[in-house]
Design a protein around this nucleic acid. Structure first.
Lengths: 222, 222
DNA sequence: CTTTCGCAAATTGTATACAATAAAGCCTTC
DNA sequence: GAAGGCTTTATTGTATACAATTTGCGAAAG
């Protein structure tokens, strides 16, 4: 979107995720405006976006507070993602074309290369992983579905988790993508759906494992 | 929310649904401001809401247009609703309390009364139906899920459909709610899920039937 | 006739001032 | 000492002015 509005959104989001603002803190528009170096107008836009991300919560009189997230809430998000992204995989399998297959294969090959070394290239992994899932979502061809899922995938807490993945976790993710490709090649929607759902669920448990020993600060939102 | 912002939202929404604005039409902020009798500021808020409702679409440079909805898109929305609201019913069944059960029974009794006469009280039916589904959603106890589903349930096109329901369609809906109550009483999550999914799917076909012979104008969004 | 460059008009983004409203503190009263 | 209402203060809602950007038209060159 626009410059100031984006800066405000990113700044506030970073403040929430870094723990600079903790759960329950009040977010006054004027204070945020001063903090971000912009006026209240773009702040209001940013707050709308953060609200739809569920990173902030608003009272009946539109006062804003930082949301508090329990592990159960994160689990909810993953479960919904598993369901919706599984459905997306099913639809994608049924609408799969050779062209998209080629792109998906290239994508996963890049993922394989990024994690093959001793020190995995996490940025490339995340980018290509995102691209892979976006391709599937596009192929599913439902604007509604895309709309719902982006809100779930944009969960910023989740992306940081990859930095704590083990070598095996990366390999498993890569291998599951290959399974998905097999399902897509056969146009087997049911298979694709179950593989994708399992893929997301495994990611949730990887998240749980990675956060078991983490401190409050590292974990981001409490 | 606030007065002017709400008025703007309702006015624009009504213009889209009534066909006064047709699919693809450009929505200039200034023109809308004049039309709604408010300034551009609340219009911008309203456009955000309409965008998240998918009633309008925005280009990369934030220009707004009325969304065009095909029957397939509406079908998508119903399918997603069936999946998510089915999941909500499952969770609700597992977390069901006697208190909520009592409220649900009262709700469905009111629905039964509203449609028992020769001339059904459609407003009461819609209100109580909405209340019934909202209770289930609350009992499911997932903010994420509530967030996702409200966007789908708020589909305004759907509500008008009830005005074309047959007597049998109302009775079936009422009866399916009773089935749901049975599933809830037994805390049978799987049963509740399948009943709810079927309930929504039936509603979709009722929608299709009702719109078969309708003119473009009556149908609202194309 | 087509294409491209540039200017003008329209549209959205941002800032600021002011109005309306809700939260909070204080005083009064029982 | 507690409770209720009033005043004060803080916060959000709205309007308007201005800046930045985009779009579309038109003229000139190939």
């Amino acid at each position: 979107m626009t410059k100031a509005s984006d800066r405000a959104y990113d700044t506030i989001r970073a403040m929430i995720l870094s723990g600079e603002l903790s759960a329950g803190d009040a977010l006054g528009e004027e204070a945020l405006a001063e903090r971000c170096g912009v006026s209240r107008t773009p702040i209001r836009d940013a707050l709308r976006r953060l609200e739809s991300d569920l990173l902030i919560r608003r009272t009946g009189t539109q006062r804003s507070f930082v949301s508090d997230w329990s592990l159960g809430d994160v689990g909810d998000a993953f479960e919904l993602r598993a369901m919706l992204e599984g459905y997306a995989a099913r639809r994608a399998a049924e609408a799969m074309t050779e062209d998209v297959l080629t792109q998906l294969r290239a994508c996963n090959a890049a993922i394989g290369a990024a994690i093959s070394g001793k020190k995995p290239d996490i940025t490339t992994f995340l980018d290509r992983n995102r691209e892979f899932h976006a391709l599937v979502l596009d192929t599913a061809g439902s604007r509604r579905l895309t709309n719902l899922l982006t809100a779930l995938i944009e969960q910023p807490v989740v992306w940081r988790t990859a930095h704590h993945y083990s070598h095996e976790a990366f390999q498993r993710s890569h291998s599951e993508h290959n399974d998905l490709l097999s399902a897509f090649e056969r146009r087997d929607g049911a298979w694709a759906e179950t593989v994708m759902a399992g893929h997301i669920r495994r990611a949730f448990h990887a998240y749980c494992d990675a956060h078991k020993g983490m401190t409050e600060g590292e974990r981001g939102v409490a």
